[in-house]
């Protein structure tokens, strides 16, 4: 059961952090901001506060 819960959680995160996200992580995404300036944004994950749903 624990194994399944963990596998399922990881599988869902793998869907969230898809290829597009990894591409953006490495090369950034260009967005025109509200002040009219184009910037290249790089997502970085700083915190993940959650229960680990293994039980």
């Amino acid at each position: 059961m624990t194994h399944c819960a963990r596998e399922l959680m990881h599988a869902q995160w793998a869907i969230l952090l898809d290829d597009e996200f990894v591409e953006a992580w490495q090369h950034g995404i260009v967005v025109t901001c509200c002040d009219g300036i184009k910037r290249r944004f790089y997502p970085r994950i700083f915190s993940y506060s959650a229960d680990y749903p293994e039980k």
């Binding site: 950034g28 260009v30 910037r39 290249r40 790089y42 994950i45 700083f46 506060s49 959650a50 749903p53």
Partner: peptide, 30 residues
């Protein structure tokens, strides 16, 4: 540190745009 690492990393070829870190913070609970 993340911002500095990003500024020091090689830029995308042909891109002079300012590079910005988007700090994502996730949280989750039942």
């Amino acid at each position: 540190d993340a911002h500095r690492d990003l500024q020091d990393s090689p830029a995308e070829p042909g891109c002079e745009l300012p590079r910005v870190v988007v700090g994502l913070m996730f949280s989750s609970d039942v």
